[in-house]
Design a protein around this nucleic acid. Structure first.
Lengths: 132, 132
DNA sequence: CGAATTACTTGCAATATGCAAGTTAAAAGA
DNA sequence: TCTTTTAACTTGCATATTGCAAGTAATTCG
């Protein structure tokens, strides 16, 4: 996991493979998820997520996601403290990926993970009557 | 990476996190991609993909993806030889995830990976004239 | 000006990945 | 039928990544 975008090595010319070269791990898309739901987050706010990422992994992922232009600092020139992370245009464009992954999980993992909550596929109307 | 679906440990109740608990690595979605484009593939046919997965990793992933119901054997009762892998309903339902990841990569990774090919966002019409 | 607090870094053990072989059983050829 | 191939893995080991528990440096607060 280099921090220099020039040093990235791509496994193939396939876009799916290339996306996984950047995002194919257990933590990167969770960081993106948290920024999608909170707008901006500081380093220690990321640590409050229920998955409990280790601090060294978080620092490495934040640095890498910054280097490839998926996230950025609120003020890129200011010091780190209280300088929250945000999504770039590229990071914001990952929303459909998160949504489709979330929707798939809700349908196809619920038998394996009965405690999982639903946030994508739940009925949007509270008062819908089918075949009234 | 257990092979027993009862042994899976989930990091949280979040569907995105849960999806990544199953698919969050560099290889699983490439196996799913290859089955989406070829329909069915034998063990050695997977090895022909340009990313060159190692044989032990391939065997482990095929076993795991089978255990969680994303892929299956063409004939579950027959011997392994010439008994190709296929997508289950669950695996087929991952297509939107692959498509959104591919589309994102084509737009947002092309500056980092200039050799990447386009298969999702390319113009569908061969004779389109804007501002004729 | 000293104590907290934030944002990391470091060291090390555990786990996962990758490479190169080796093994096993079905199937094809003699 | 009896090798010989070959497909489908497994194994051993080196390297890389992850995870945990500390430690550190720079702010900021009292």
């Amino acid at each position: 996991m280099s921090t220099d975008p020039e040093m990235l090595d791509w496994r193939s010319v396939c876009p799916i493979s290339s996306g996984l070269d950047i995002l194919g791990d257990k933590w990167s898309l969770l960081i993106v998820r948290d920024l999608h739901s909170h707008g901006s987050l500081t380093y220690s706010e990321f640590l409050e997520a229920p998955e409990h990422i280790a601090t060294n992994i978080l620092a490495a992922r934040l640095r890498f996601l910054t280097s490839v232009g998926i996230i950025k600092r609120t003020d890129p020139c200011a010091a780190a403290r209280n300088n929250a992370y945000r999504l770039t245009t590229s990071g914001k464009a990952l929303r459909p990926v998160l949504e489709e992954l979330g929707k798939w999980s809700e349908v196809h993992l619920k038998t394996l993970h009965t405690d999982m909550v639903e946030i994508f596929n739940q009925a949007s109307a509270t008062q819908t009557h089918h075949q009234a």
